[in-house]
Design a binder for these strands. Structure first.
Lengths: 203, 203
DNA sequence: GCACTGAAAACCGATTCGGTCAATAGCATG
DNA sequence: CATGCTATTGACCGAATCGGTTTTCAGTGC
């Protein structure tokens, strides 16, 4: 593992992204070391030289994602109480995550649904430990009084959630996407909803 | 192939759904006949007994989806020009497709991104032939004058697209989902947007 | 008892799996 | 140029799995 960490950062990232993509799209079992090596432009032997085993690599990726996520959140997530401002922050976090590691979001959702017995226990342990993150993005303490009175806020949140999942799915399939355009679209989306759903004195 | 078609419909569907799921989540190459057989509750030998080869099964599934799609569209898609009414119809079509075959949507999007050389040629040929379907769902001939003047309709369509992708992705991971609840949520979504984005005389 | 049939187990050669290792290429130092 | 060192690799390992075939077998009608 220290073998890997002493590599130049650029090479580390190439390997990480290759592995995130492979595991994210194929799951733990069906992602092979050869796939990862090929995508990273190294030989399969190096994968094991750096990480020792496929499982070690997988667990390292989870840890890496956790750290990356946390760092990004700590950097960008301030104390914002407005619903849409917080949404913009979250989508900003997602976008900059994807700029650094395009496959990170699809990998993160994939570990959530991973069922392979080789790793499921370890995943649960790690996720349980890192549950604190979720608190920071949860939508409590939100000022709902700004919405028009007849708006079903639960529905709005579902809708927002679907939008987020949808654009994550799109970017997973379309690797050469322009993230700045995506960010603009997302923010325009939120602006549109805000203008439409807030009472007029708050838009 | 006629071996398969002379099976009771229920068994056919179980095999079809197993295959749709396997190919949809793992792609052509990484979905194995054993996976499909296990999920369908039959032996691997039967898969080859029914379809002869993995490729034949895959191409049959594409054809099957095309026919199913077309039947569903012909049944439900009338001449509706209102933007949101048409959306509701489309989501209605999607929902009833998923009720019949839960993995059909994820399979359909997966064939769009399939890159395996064994099948890519055949896919292109079939998709080219079936391009006529796309005309029926395209958003031309839509009366855009009902929207408030400051609404960016292109953005609205992107948003709608993301919502659709998002809830398809969700249902792909969550197999025991209640489709009627999903349908209600989707329609409520559209209703909300309609109320918010249309000029008041059209809501 | 016998023939037929639908299904599964066992099996086939080939490929791929996770993982290892000897050999090599590059490169600094003498 | 020789030497040692390190990073990297192609070749290789036994085991598993691949797509696909053959054999076996349980059930059923006669």
């Amino acid at each position: 593992m220290d073998k890997f960490l002493s590599l130049p950062k650029e090479k580390q990232n190439k390997i990480i992204d290759a592995a995130l993509t492979a595991f994210g799209t194929n799951g733990y079992k069906k992602a092979s070391a050869s796939d990862i090596a090929r995508a990273a432009g190294i030989s399969k032997a190096m994968v094991f030289h750096y990480f020792g085993s496929k499982k070690t690599l997988y667990l390292y990726l989870i840890e890496f994602c956790g750290a990356t996520l946390e760092a990004e959140f700590n950097e960008k997530l301030g104390a914002v109480n407005d619903f849409f401002d917080r949404l913009k922050m979250i989508s900003g976090v997602k976008i900059s995550l994807m700029k650094k590691h395009p496959a990170i979001l699809s990998f993160l959702t994939s570990i959530y649904f991973e069922r392979d017995k080789d790793v499921q226990g370890d995943i649960e342990a790690i996720l349980a430990k890192g549950g604190s993150l979720r608190n920071k993005v949860a939508f409590d303490g939100i000022d709902t009084s700004k919405f028009k009175d007849n708006i079903d806020i639960t529905l709005v949140m579902k809708m927002i959630y679907w939008i987020g999942e949808g654009y994550a799915a799109q970017s997973a399939h379309q690797p050469d996407i322009d993230y700045d355009v995506l960010a603009q679209d997302m923010n325009a989306c939120f602006e549109l909803l805000k203008n439409s759903l807030y009472k007029e004195e708050f838009v």
